[in-house]
Design a protein around this nucleic acid. Structure first.
Lengths: 150, 150
DNA sequence: ATTGTTCTTGCATAAATATGCAAAAACATG
DNA sequence: CATGTTTTTGCATATTTATGCAAGAACAAT
């Protein structure tokens, strides 16, 4: 697994699960076939701008807003946190305020099996032309949004 | 110096200075005549929702929004008007302008079967991880949003 | 005042995170 | 390919943060 893939996996895990320590994250990554040490994760999180948030309720990791992170890339890639789907639609999580940008980016592709997108603040909903096409569109989006190639 | 005064001083210091560790904060407080241990500050920051933010640029403490979201729970109850669903998604109606708040509240739960929420002004769409899970998620949300229990 | 209760704090230490350094891997160039 | 350069990583450990426990302070009710 490449470093880039690991960084994205970290974003996705942090966006969708309660991660309370780097060691928990390490185990989560291991499940996905990525075996690295806590030291590497400490460096990754610094690079990604993922921090531990504490409150009376407990502590967990979360992405910071893009503005706070002096992000190197003005790329859609940096704004996308995770991509999930169920049988009939696809949900993309983004940094706060970025769903719209990512939605427009997808719109201009004019993929024949994407009939529409709806953007909230940090969540983007993508509707495939048919439930049958969901997987196919999901694959297309992961390529497009993460690796950033055709 | 009372605890309340100290908590206020911490907020003020964190908002105006680069605080990179609890020990730096401890020295800053000492200048103002407040001499406490690092252990106390760890507890204070948890209570205040002040967290350490890291990025390539370095690390420093800042107030966090997540704590505020958790504190919203009592309000969420009042803002929710209705919860309905069809086979594949759930729609929550809220007071005007409140859909976003309720959405964030649901997001931070990170329920494994909720892959995302999209908020309009007074309508919130919730996407379950699978159509099979819709009923289950619906039940969870009714508990969480209406009865308001854990 | 006495007793019981709750809150706050420091101490010691456990737990978690960050980092210097060297090795390995990836990349570039002659 | 051989050689020099940069990047990535693990190891060991330093640094930083969190917490169990007991003592002291604050408060209440009798």
């Amino acid at each position: 697994m490449t470093k880039q893939a690991r960084l994205f996996a970290i974003k996705e895990i942090v966006a969708t699960k309660q991660i309370v320590s780097q060691d928990v994250l390490r185990r989560e990554l291991k499940k996905r076939g990525c075996d690295v040490t806590q030291a590497t994760l400490s460096r990754d999180m610094k690079e990604l701008g993922v921090s531990r948030i504490v409150s009376s309720a407990g502590g967990q990791y979360a992405m910071q807003a893009l503005a706070e992170v002096q992000a190197l890339r003005p790329l859609v890639n940096a704004e996308v946190l995770s991509i999930d789907s169920n049988e009939g639609m696809i949900v993309v999580h983004t940094l706060p305020g970025c769903a719209n940008t990512v939605g427009e980016f997808i719109d201009v592709q004019k993929h024949p099996d994407v009939i529409g997108t709806v953007a909230g603040d940090n969540t983007l909903l993508i509707i495939p032309s048919s439930q049958r096409k969901t997987k196919q569109v999901l694959h297309f989006l992961k390529n497009k949004l993460i690796e950033g190639q055709e």
